[in-house]
Amino acid sequence: MTHPPRCSPGTNGPSTVLILGARGRLGLAAARAFAQAGWQVLAQVRPAARGPALPAIPGVWWMPVAVDDTAALAAQAQCAQVVVHALNPAYTHKAWREEVPALMEAAIAVTRQLRATLMLPGNVYNFGEAMPPVLREDTPQAATGFKGRMRVQLEQRLHAATQGGEMRAIVLRAGDFFGSGTGSWIDQAIAKDLPQGRITWPGPPDVATPWAYLPDLARTFVRVAQERDRLAAFECLHFAGHHATAQPWLHSFTAIAAEQGWLPAAGALRVGRLPWPLLRVMGWVVPTFAALADMRYLWTTPHRLDNIRLRALIGDEPHTPFDQAVRQALADLGLVTSPTPRAVLA
């Protein structure tokens, strides 16, 4: 759908959400989840952006409007009570330094104009290399890297933006994303050589870290949005997702490889290690590698996200069983057949 629904602010029509960056993995997963929950979805994308054709999703209206054109966005999204910030620049330090603050200001501007609630996906960068094994909403934030410090600043800016009463905000913090297409550790490193019988694990195999299966996280955004009036003007909630070492991943990958005929003659997947020192050296030439190298501590420091406050608000998290989520994530990459209809998982 290309023309957003007309409405008058303050009417008792369907709940409406504006998703900024709806072409991305999280944005598209959120669009599907909100639409399936009965919301009207206004899906912002860059005008004339290159890429695959926008999918036709019932209940989703695609809006090719520049994110910093506040007047045009607000005019087309006047119905929206919730704004989801799913904008995501390139992974490099330069892109973050130049684009991330501006994207946040654009999101705040349109949310204020709409007098809505802004929802931001958070991550664990805020806590730094000395983070404790259990991360709660009140865990002190002691970021040690460039991106961690920037994430802290962004959340502080968002908090400040809610003080005037023109908008509300929710940070929903989660671990590493997987599922819903390309652009994660799974396709870029861990399982990129799975059809050749090999995986590459970035850290010690016994270190457990949090993973967010994107369709589950997207449904959690919907559930939190539906309960937003029970929250303070600014809130942070933690999404636990899957807490896993390398072993469950290896188990799932091995089962899938056996079915696909990808196992080596020895009957077991070959497991390689990510060459972190080489990434650091190559970072002098390829900025993305330098940014990745700065995140090595996330693979060597055991941690998990405590979701007690989230469960008190919405009940149990949406939670796809791990093996099923891994299989669907590989299906989204075109490597295997989907185990379940997309409508169930999206």
Rank of each mutant, 00 (worst) to 15 (best):
T2L: 08
P5W: 02
P9I: 08
N12Q: 15
S15A: 15
T16R: 01
V17I: 14
L18P: 00
L18K: 03
G24S: 10
R25M: 12
L26K: 01
A29M: 09
A30C: 15
A31T: 04
A33D: 04
F34R: 01
V45R: 00
P47F: 01
A49R: 15
R50T: 13
A53D: 14
I57S: 06
W61G: 01
W62R: 04
V65N: 00
D69I: 02
D69E: 05
A71K: 09
A71Q: 14
L73G: 00
L73Y: 00
A74Y: 03
Q76D: 08
C79Y: 00
C79T: 02
L87E: 02
L87A: 07
L87R: 03
N88H: 14
A95I: 07
R97E: 12
E98T: 11
L103N: 05
A106G: 04
V110A: 03
Q113H: 13
Q113S: 15
A116T: 05
M119W: 02
G122S: 03
N123D: 14
Y125F: 15
Y125A: 02
E129M: 08
M131A: 15
P132N: 01
V134I: 13
R136M: 07
T139V: 06
A143S: 12
K147D: 02
R149L: 11
V152E: 06
V152H: 01
Q153P: 00
L154C: 06
L154P: 00
H159G: 10
T162Q: 09
Q163T: 12
A169K: 01
A169Y: 04
R173Q: 11
D176N: 12
F178L: 06
G179P: 09
S180N: 15
G181M: 07
G183D: 11
I186L: 14
I186M: 14
D187E: 11
Q188C: 06
Q188Y: 09
D193K: 14
L194D: 05
P195Q: 09
P195S: 09
Q196I: 02
I199F: 06
P202T: 11
P204D: 12
A212Q: 05
L214V: 11
D216Y: 11
T220Y: 00
F221H: 08
V224G: 05
Q226V: 02
D229K: 13
L231W: 10
L231E: 04
A233W: 08
G241H: 03
G241K: 02
H242M: 10
A244Q: 15
T245Y: 03
T245W: 02
A246W: 04
A246T: 07
H251R: 12
S252K: 04
S252N: 09
F253L: 14
T254I: 08
E259S: 12
W262G: 11
P264S: 11
A268R: 12
L269S: 10
L269R: 10
G272H: 14
R273L: 10
L274I: 08
W276Y: 13
P277I: 12
V281F: 11
G283N: 09
F289D: 04
L292D: 01
D294G: 05
M295V: 03
Y297G: 08
T301R: 14
H303P: 03
H303V: 05
R304D: 10
D306K: 02
N307T: 06
L310N: 03
R311F: 01
L313I: 07
T320N: 09
P321N: 10
V326G: 07
R327Y: 03
Q328R: 13
A329G: 12
D332R: 05
L333P: 03
V336D: 07
V336F: 11
P339D: 12
T340Q: 13
R342A: 15
A346N: 15
A346E: 14
